[in-house]
Design a binder for these strands. Structure first.
Lengths: 196, 196
DNA sequence: GTCTATACCTGGATAGAC
DNA sequence: GTCTATCCAGGTATAGAC
């Protein structure tokens, strides 16, 4: 009811702080201060730190699905949809250079912590993986659609880690160009298949 | 003199624990227990947690330089040396799948923490970057040697992040094969240049 | 050089008043 | 629903005996 607002504000601030500073490095006090509530009030909405993490991952799952659906709606051409994914590292360049990829850095941190929510955070990767898989199938690459999807994911993660470390805009631009050329090659192959 | 042993054992255990569990998640107690000394004794060797981190990064810098020198010594062909780098994700596959890339995960974590040692950890990346740069120059690619070096680094980081998240051996093998083919293409280009 | 003991702080979590 | 007060565990760091 009325408390949805506060709960959602907590999730939004926790989402931001976890992205910017890491999960372990984000304390209840940090989140409470950001929202503007007391530490005690916090526990009315979330009983533990793990519960906030679950809520944040859930929110990210929702927004990721919305983004993927929007990409699919914007274009009926699977190659254009995949290009939207590739261009994401440019679209979010400023944030990536500051804080890395929100998915990659969270998964890496939770893995190091041996955190129970690790499989859930990996689901964020899987969301992209299966979506990319579908697009490559539509391009006529049923046989290796998953391998191509993983390659595209690896591209995004490699670029994100190094952009984060070196703060190099031109590097990102070069890698995106290279990746788009790779995609063009796959589209050209797909166009030839019916002719064989 | 005699205390070198204890100091080095501390660094070695800290190195391992920071890699396995992350810097922030590794406490003095963890390291002291692993070494088999008391917490108090710890401070005889290192005055702060930052000092251990510096020592660990220093040790990693040394061992990385030794590895790069060994690769250069093993083969006089720059393409073979670069191949040694590409194959590193297979050589260290088991550890990477468990804990990710030691360089990438440390740099990402220190960046999130806003830690003062961030530039030093990035130097680990730079060590690979400049070494790869040199090898590509030897292949006759002075013009874009750094771009190629960064591409090779991005490959290794992308593979490491996803191998860590998904624990997929075949994915690593596929990406390594793809990367070796890419390298072969560069070598073939280099062979053609004198003929033009 | 190594130990025990301890001071001090931060962070997660709870109790109970309003 | 929100607050203050408080407890407790764990982590950094120091003091001082051996």
């Amino acid at each position: 009811m009325a408390d949805i607002t506060t709960r959602e504000r907590i999730i939004a601030e926790a989402d931001r702080l976890i992205y910017e500073n890491g999960y372990e490095h984000t304390s209840f006090a940090d989140i409470a201060d950001a929202v503007g509530i007391s530490r005690g009030n916090f526990y009315y909405h979330f009983k533990s730190k793990d519960e906030i993490l679950d809520a944040v991952i859930g929110k990210r799952m929702m927004s990721t699905e919305q983004m993927l659906n929007a990409w699919a709606a914007q274009s009926s051409h699977p190659a254009e949809r995949i290009r939207s994914f590739i261009l994401m590292v440019v679209t979010n360049q400023a944030k990536i250079m500051r804080h890395g990829c929100p998915v990659g850095t969270l998964c890496s941190e939770l893995a190091k912590l041996g955190h129970a929510a690790q499989p859930q955070s990996n689901q964020l990767f899987s969301l992209f993986r299966t979506w990319l898989h579908q697009q490559f199938v539509l391009l006529g690459r049923e046989a290796d659609a998953d391998a191509l999807a993983m390659h595209a994911l690896a591209f995004s993660q490699g670029v994100a880690v190094l952009a984060h470390a070196f703060n190099d805009e031109q590097f990102v631009a070069r890698e995106v160009e290279r990746m788009c050329a790779w995609l063009d090659g796959i589209v050209a192959d797909a166009a030839q298949v019916p002719a064989i």
